[in-house]
């Protein structure tokens, strides 16, 4: 069989987070965590699932030119930190060749995209990315 370089289970169990930004909300104090975690800072270990909103504001960004072997053909990669309903999330910025044209606090929406694939025969990883609603051109 072809050598599988990307783990399937490691991706599959994160599908709720990668596809739907499923965070956890502490039942006791209401604090929301993304990425999810096992225990709240208030001490409680009981959480409810909570999908982050798919619109937010861009806090900061950068464009990475020195990428890793997995992303060689996708360079450069733009990354941003977005505030989605009060929760800060890190992700790739897409559909934005000129991010320097963005104003601070620019509106972004969450989109569903391919992240990478394991050559021509292995699995395709999908996940969320951040797309500035306008202003990148």
């Amino acid at each position: 069989m072809v050598d599988q370089n990307l783990s399937v289970p490691k991706y599959w169990r994160k599908i709720p987070q990668y596809y739907r930004l499923t965070a956890v909300k502490c039942r006791k104090c209401g604090r929301v965590y993304f990425p999810p975690r096992a225990a709240c800072e208030c001490g409680s270990r009981e959480f409810d699932e909570y999908e982050l909103p798919r619109r937010g504001k861009l806090i900061e960004y950068t464009v990475l030119r020195s990428v890793t072997s997995d992303f060689e053909k996708q360079r450069p990669l733009a990354f941003g930190i977005a505030d989605l309903g009060g929760v800060r999330v890190f992700g790739q910025l897409v559909d934005c060749p000129n991010p320097d044209k963005l104003s601070e606090g620019a509106e972004v929406e969450v989109v569903f995209r391919r992240v990478k694939e394991d050559s021509d025969y292995g699995i395709i990883y999908y996940g969320f990315k951040l797309r500035p609603v306008k202003g990148c051109w």
């Binding site: 596809y19 053909k73 996708q74 897409v94 989109v111 569903f112 995209r113 391919r114 395709i124 999908y126």
Partner: peptide, 16 residues
């Protein structure tokens, strides 16, 4: 579509 778009990603956007 961009390099990271495909019939799956577009199906998700339209379905949402």
């Amino acid at each position: 579509g961009y390099i990271d778009e495909d019939p799956v990603t577009m199906a998700v956007e339209a379905s949402r």
